[in-house]
Each structure stands twice: as C-alpha cells, then as structure tokens.
C-alpha cells in the first residue's frame, strides 16, 4: 500500500530524459503545469496529452509506474470530478434527487480531472527520471536568486535531498514496527474511527522516536565529514548544460508557444 507512492521516487534506467539537466527538467515541469492552466479546449488538452505521451515514451519508465502514482490521489480525483459534475450550474442533462448533472458540469469536471492527472504524471515524470541529488542540485541552482532575499536555499535543498533518501528506510521501519506491535496483539483493523486513531499511537511514537534518533545520528555524521553549510562547497557533478539540453529548451519553448497560440486562435 505505502510502497505504491511513486511521487518523489527515482526509476533507474538509461534514457534521453534521464540524461537531461535537472534545471531544465524543473523549469520544464513548471512551464508544463502553467500550460495546463492555460489550455481551454479539447485541442489544447490533446496537445498537452501528446506532449506528455511522447515524454513518457522517451523516459523508458514503465507506464504502470506512473499510473500507480495516481492511486494515491484517487480520492482527490473522484472528489474533484463529482463536485464539479454536480455543482456546476447550467443546462440540465440528468436529474438525480436534488442534484443535477449539467453539460457544463461534465465539461468542467472532466477538465479538472484530466488536468490533475496530467499534472501528477508530469511532475512524477520529473522525479522518476532525476536522482534526488541532481534534483536538489537543480533546485538549488534554479532558486539561487532567492538567496539575496536571505532565504536558506542551500539548506532547504539539502533537507529535501536527505528527506527523500530516508523515505525507503522509514517505510521499511514502519512495516517492522507495525508487525512488532501486531505480534503484541495490536489491532489495526477495527471499524470504529476512534479505535483506529488510537491504534496509530503504538506505531507513530516509535516511528517518530526513531526518526529523531536517525536525524541526530545523521547530523553528527555530517559534521564529522566537515559539513558546514553551502559556503565553499564544491560539487562532484557540477551542473553544465549540454547540446541536448539546449535542444530540449527549444522544444519546450515551441510547445509553450503552441499552447498559447492555440488559446488565441481558437
């Protein structure tokens, strides 16, 4: 169940997308998300969809993986869909008790759902093809201008990269703690909500305690390896744009122009 979360996970393989500069991928994802909010009609969605499909093929990541990421937000998807279908006023198609399904509702609902699906797949495509370290390197560089505003950009990037690295460890630990408490007769399948919330305590307390201990250990280990913030730090793999990156930027700009043009023309 918990293992299904693909957001923020890296899928190791070789592909054009894997080789691209993380800065490009971050900016690209950002632009793609904006583009999703600019499109107004089916042609726009078709362009965005085709663009995404091409990227998925290029990424060499099995499609299954991305669909699995959607499972996590299934409730949100259904909720968004249902709310929009029923609560948008307009030409009534079907009437169910007090609620009306309208043509506009269907339109808005399906649009919202498609938008969300594209958004999630688009951003998980970025994390699936970029190692967390490169991702944070990229983020650090992209956000560098914010340093002038005294924002701790390097530190934030470091925290993110560490957090991502610890996800698999903590998931494994969660599994172990659940089993250990089950072995002491803990019941996680009670139907009553209050009982279920209460049953989380024996899991969450050890998990937190352990996370704190790990954080303390890690801090010591980092200090022992001369970590003292971003100042004067060099990089094993400094970010450098290559030809493929420039081409990708070009493609990205073309896509964005297409979306805007489509919005103006139609």
């Amino acid at each position: 169940m918990i293992r299904d979360i693909t957001l923020g996970q890296y899928y190791q393989t070789e592909s054009v997308l894997h080789g691209l500069d993380p800065r490009l991928k971050i900016i690209g994802t950002f632009l793609y998300i904006i583009s999703l909010f600019l499109v107004r009609d089916i042609f726009g969605y078709a362009v965005a969809g085709i663009f995404l499909a091409v990227l998925i093929v290029l990424s060499h990541v099995p499609f299954k993986f991305m669909v699995r990421g959607l499972k996590g937000i299934l409730v949100l998807l259904i909720f968004t869909g249902v709310v929009n279908v029923f609560l948008t006023p307009g030409e009534v198609l079907v009437s169910v008790w007090k609620f009306n399904i309208t043509r506009e509702g269907l339109k808005v609902g399906s649009r919202m759902v498609i938008r969300l699906v594209f958004l999630v797949i688009g951003s998980s495509l970025m994390t699936l093809t970029t190692t967390p370290n490169r991702l944070t390197d990229g983020l650090e560089r992209v956000l560098k201008p914010l340093k002038r505003l005294k924002l701790p950009v390097h530190e934030m990037a470091m925290i993110m990269s560490i957090a991502l690295g610890f996800i698999p460890i903590l998931i494994e630990e969660l599994d172990k703690i659940m089993k250990a408490q089950s072995a002491r007769g803990a019941d996680f399948e009670s139907k009553k909500l209050s009982a279920r919330i209460k049953s989380m305590v024996p899991i969450l307390v050890p998990l937190f305690v352990s996370a704190f201990r790990r954080a303390g250990d890690l801090a010591t280990a980092m200090e022992a390896r001369c970590y003292h913030g971003g100042e004067g730090r060099t990089k094993l793999k400094p970010l450098r744009y290559r030809r493929a990156d420039y081409i990708a930027y070009l493609v990205l700009i073309l896509y964005f122009i297409l979306i805007i043009a489509e919005g103006i023309i139609f």
């Binding site: 370290n133 890690l218 001369c226 970590y227 730090r233």
Partner: peptide, 18 residues
Amino acid sequence: NQIIGTVVEEDVAFGPEN
C-alpha cells in the same frame, strides 16, 4: 544513519565537497 547520498559515488564525494 551516516549515508547522505542517494548514489554510492555521490555519498563518497560528500566529504571532499564540503
């Protein structure tokens, strides 16, 4: 609790980077 990088070579580089 002492591995910082998500790839072996990146972890080994952490000290010299600092």
